[in-house]
């Protein structure tokens, strides 16, 4: 197999979702511009070009409010599944395994191996940080994207206020506006439902061959075995 072909095969999941992200983002830009222009016409304003639309905070906040909720979802799920279990779920550890687990199970400290990541072998603060790096990075991206959505949402809100000849608000003022919290909560609620569904539905339902599911023939009572 050539190097290029093996790269594609080895990274099919990351590449496929990266590609679908770009395609759907273009879809959002096209449909968002059409929707925005329909609103402009209703308000007796000039329609804008797609380039104007994708460089507007209106597009920016629509993108970022969805990003932030996805990273909140993963951040919460990563941390919650350390401490909370769901009996029978493919997404859960066995009841009784709640918590950080032993150094032996986690292959840290004296149980680190020659091929363990460098920060695991280093010990001290580096191992402490690396042991939480997935949750920390997801949580950090959530905070960044939520902050970005607040800045773009503020600008978009103010341009609507101006179009309606209403007073504009400061960024801090926008954080107290219903618009900001409505955008946040409407995305958060769907993530919580989706994550809860995944945890609970995977107790009784199967997807043959998916690591997100238990093997088809495994008992409903069995927790955490993926296949």
């Amino acid at each position: 197999m050539t190097a290029a072909r093996s790269f594609v095969k080895d990274n099919a999941l990351g590449l496929a979702f990266g590609g679908m992200f770009l395609v759907t983002l273009v879809g959002q830009a096209i449909s968002g511009a059409a929707d925005y222009n329909a609103q402009q016409v209703t308000n007796g304003l000039e329609p804008v070009s797609i380039l104007d639309y994708v460089t507007s905070s209106s597009f920016g906040v629509d993108v970022m409010e969805n990003w932030q909720s996805e990273y909140l979802q993963f951040f919460l799920y990563i941390f919650a599944t350390v401490w909370l279990v769901q009996r029978g779920s493919a997404e859960s550890k066995e009841p009784g395994d709640e918590g950080m687990e032993s150094d032996e199970e986690q292959r840290v400290g004296e149980h680190a191996r020659a091929d363990s990541p460098a920060w695991v072998r280093a010990g001290g603060w580096r191992t402490t940080v690396f042991s939480r790096s997935l949750g920390l990075v997801m949580g950090g991206i959530f905070l960044l994207t939520w902050a970005a959505s607040s800045v773009a949402g503020w600008a978009a809100y103010n341009s609507e206020q101006l179009a309606e000849k209403q007073d504009t608000v400061s960024w801090a003022g926008y954080l107290g506006e219903a618009d900001f919290w409505n955008r946040s909560f409407q995305n958060w609620q769907s993530e919580m439902l989706a994550v809860g569904s995944m945890a609970v539905l995977s107790v009784y339902l199967r997807q043959r061959g998916s690591p997100e599911s238990k093997p088809v023939g495994v008992s409903h009572a069995e927790t955490g075995e993926t296949g």
Binding site: G60, V61, I141, A156
Partner: peptide, 30 residues
């Protein structure tokens, strides 16, 4: 693993560029 690392860096780059781009749009009041 070198190709995988490139994909990892690409994902983080896209996320951070997206955040920076939207923040700038907002700060410019566009």
């Amino acid at each position: 693993m070198r190709g995988v690392r490139r994909l990892y860096v690409a994902y983080l780059t896209v996320i951070l560029l997206g955040v920076a781009y939207v923040t700038v749009l907002g700060l410019m009041g566009r």
